[in-house]
C-alpha cells in the first residue's frame, strides 16, 4: 500500500486533499493538497497559526466537510462514497470527538451523555466497559450530575469517556485543553496519551499550545493549508521554534 509514511496500513489516510471555499477570484484554499497517514496507537498534534487550515482539515477527517478534491479514508473506507446515513454510522462507531467547549448535552446526566452514542446506535451498554472507562477517568461519583453541575475538568473527562466508550479507531480532539486550567489540561493530555499508547487509538489533536503538543508522538506544522514540517517526539522549545518559523512564513 502506497502511503506517505509507507510501512503499515493507516487507520486514517488523506490523499491529495484539497478544500476550496468560494469560486473565482474570491476563492480561498483552506487545505491545499494534503496527503497524510495516521497509524494505530499514534498520537498526532497539528499546529499552525489561525487560518492555516487546521480546523478545516479536522472537519474533513471527520467527514463533516466535503473535500473539493482528493479523499479521506477511514480504515480503508473512502468517506466520499458514504451517504449521510453511512457517515453518521461511521462517526458513531469509528470516530470519537473531544472539543474545547466540552459539547455535552445540557439536558442529560453525565452517564446519559457518555452512553449517548451507544444509545443512538441502539446498542445495549456494556456495564463492565462503562465501569472501566468511568473508573479510569475518576467519574464514578459524578455520573448522576448534569453538565452544569460539573467542573470544566470533569466535563471534559465526561466528553472523553463518551469518545472512548465505543472503542473508536480514531479520536479527534480540537483544542481539548483550551478551556481547562493547567492541572486539568495536563491530566487530560496524559489520558489521551494513554489512550493511544495502551489502547491503540489513533489520535489527532489540533492545538495552539506548544506544551500540549509535546505529549504527542509527532507534531505536524501547517500554514496556508499545506504541511510545512513534522517533528517527532518534540520538546516544547522545538515546537515553539517551529511554530515561530511557520508564522514568519505567513
Amino acid at each position: 500500500m502506497n502511503t506517505p509514511t509507507g510501512q503499515r496500513s493507516s487507520t486514517l489516510r488523506t490523499v491529495d486533499l484539497v478544500r476550496r471555499y468560494g469560486v473565482g477570484e474570491t476563492a480561498v484554499t483552506a487545505v491545499a493538497g494534503v496527503s497524510l497517514g495516521f497509524e494505530p496507537a499514534q498520537f498526532t498534534a497539528i499546529m499552525g497559526p489561525s487560518g492555516s487550515g487546521k480546523s478545516t482539515l479536522m472537519n474533513l477527517l471527520a467527514g463533516l466537510d466535503t473535500p473539493t478534491s482528493g479523499s479521506v479514508l477511514v480504515e480503508g473506507q473512502d468517506l466520499a462514497r458514504l451517504d449521510d446515513r453511512g457517515l453518521t454510522r461511521l462517526r458513531r462507531e469509528r470516530i470519537g470527538f473531544v472539543f474545547q467547549a466540552f459539547n455535552l448535552l445540557p439536558a442529560l446526566t453525565a452517564e446519559q451523555n457518555i452512553l449517548l452514542p451507544l444509545r443512538l446506535a441502539g446498542q445495549r451498554p456494556d456495564r463492565d466497559r462503562l465501569d472501566e472507562v468511568v473508573r479510569s477517568l475518576r467519574l464514578g461519583d459524578r455520573l448522576g450530575h448534569r453538565p452544569t453541575e460539573l467542573s470544566g475538568g470533569q466535563q471534559q473527562r465526561v466528553a472523553l469517556a463518551r469518545a472512548l466508550l465505543t472503542r473508536p479507531a480514531v479520536l479527534l480532539a480540537d483544542e481539548p485543553t483550551g478551556a481547562l486550567d493547567v492541572t486539568n489540561g495536563r491530566e487530560l493530555l496524559e489520558r489521551l496519551r494513554t489512550a493511544s499508547s495502551e489502547l491503540g487509538r489513533t489520535i489527532v489533536m489540533v492545538t495552539h499550545d506548544p506544551v500540549a503538543a509535546t505529549y504527542a508522538d509527532r507534531v505536524l506544522l501547517m500554514s496556508d493549508g499545506a504541511l510545512h514540517g513534522t517533528l517527532e517526539h518534540p520538546t516544547a522549545e522545538q515546537v515553539l521554534a517551529a511554530v515561530a518559523r511557520a508564522e514568519s512564513r505567513c
Partner: peptide, 16 residues
Amino acid sequence: RRDTALLRLVGADRAR
C-alpha cells in the same frame, strides 16, 4: 441547534 449538531456528530442520523 448546537445540541442538535452534537447529536448528529456523535452518530444520530436525520431521521433520529
